[in-house]
Design a protein around this nucleic acid. Sequence first.
DNA 1: CGCTAAACGGATGGGGTCGTCCATTTACGC
DNA 2: GCGTAAATGGACGACCCCATCCGTTTAGCG
Lengths: 206, 206
Amino acid sequence: MELRADARHNRERILDAAREAFATRGLDVPMAAVARRAGVGVATLYRRFPSRESLITEVFGDELATCASVVDEALADPDPWRGFRVMVEKVCAMQVADRGFTEAFLTAFPEAVDFERTRARAERGLAEVVARAKAAGRLRADFAPADLVLLLKANCGAATGSPEEAAAASRRLVAYLLQSFRAEHAEPLPPAPPLTLGHLHATATR
Amino acid sequence: MELRADARHNRERILDAAREAFATRGLDVPMAAVARRAGVGVATLYRRFPSRESLITEVFGDELATCASVVDEALADPDPWRGFRVMVEKVCAMQVADRGFTEAFLTAFPEAVDFERTRARAERGLAEVVARAKAAGRLRADFAPADLVLLLKANCGAATGSPEEAAAASRRLVAYLLQSFRAEHAEPLPPAPPLTLGHLHATATR
DNA sequence: CGCTAAACGGATGGGGTCGTCCATTTACGC
DNA sequence: GCGTAAATGGACGACCCCATCCGTTTAGCG
């Protein structure tokens, strides 16, 4: 059913406010703060988005799509290794730029249908990127797709402090890790953690 | 002045309870939960440890000392690289085993005199370990002491989920990073983040 | 054994967030 | 204009945590 004009307007203001609040203060920001920032009552916020999760899902729908498109770009790159590398760098940069995005990405919401679908697509794409980079002999053979999760979680931990510090730390960590992901001079590794992208649900919930 | 026998007894129970609670639930565990676990009233807890920080300081005094001794072991190893590597592996394992320790280590408390002194000593020791490993030609020349902070923060982020998952993830991450810390085949890196161990105060406070 | 100071712990007030309820306001079809 | 249903937002009760207060209990000395 159609929303009334004022309702539609307020919905947009809420989404904008939530986007900004999540980016700077993380997903734990009080609902009341989002409402205040949107110039709206708390009830309006709750009527439009019955749960915090539904708000988050809506807000990060776009960014998740961006994420998926980054995977597609990686697949389109004629150089498999460069595709892999750039993909990793971009996603990590996104993680650093938007604190809320990081949390949303790591926490995940099984209920959010959109999330599920987009994520499944991203997961297939990722496996493909990894496989191509290995086939080209540039990515070490014992690299596990779960190592990407490892990288994201590590990046999340490294990217604390002021935005400048976070960006610098992330760049350096990513550079270090990309180097050890390369096939040349690879040394033996302990077994991969039993994580799949799907396991992210359980992990970072706290 | 001397504590009465029952008071001393309760103090021990509180410290035990706090150690366990911090290890499993992190430093944010409610004071009341610690008191309950210790079989003690909240007031007793607050009388003995006026602030949460004082409790934390007391609880992690030992573990910090352990940390310092790990640095000493590294310095005592005739093989500088092995000393470095084992030191990193041990500290990261400690981080994984005790969630509270991680937070305490990263959060730090400028007021806690003991912390300050022990940490300053550890910091000097670390610089020495790094210098020796570089001099031996095993650690890459552009390795910055701040990279150890980077490693710890990354490890903290990676070590989420069940204890088994956390341990596996940490081991693998450390293996990856140690490999890229080696002098051989080192590739250019982006500049080191401007972090010193001292900067840890500001960073992970949330 | 009895007394007193030390220690105890439950109750309490203050602050904060969550999510709902309801009296009031507003859009918009007629 | 006007009436109605949709939309609004502040107030409210429930819950949780912190930290203190105070009436009660207990250790340990003489």
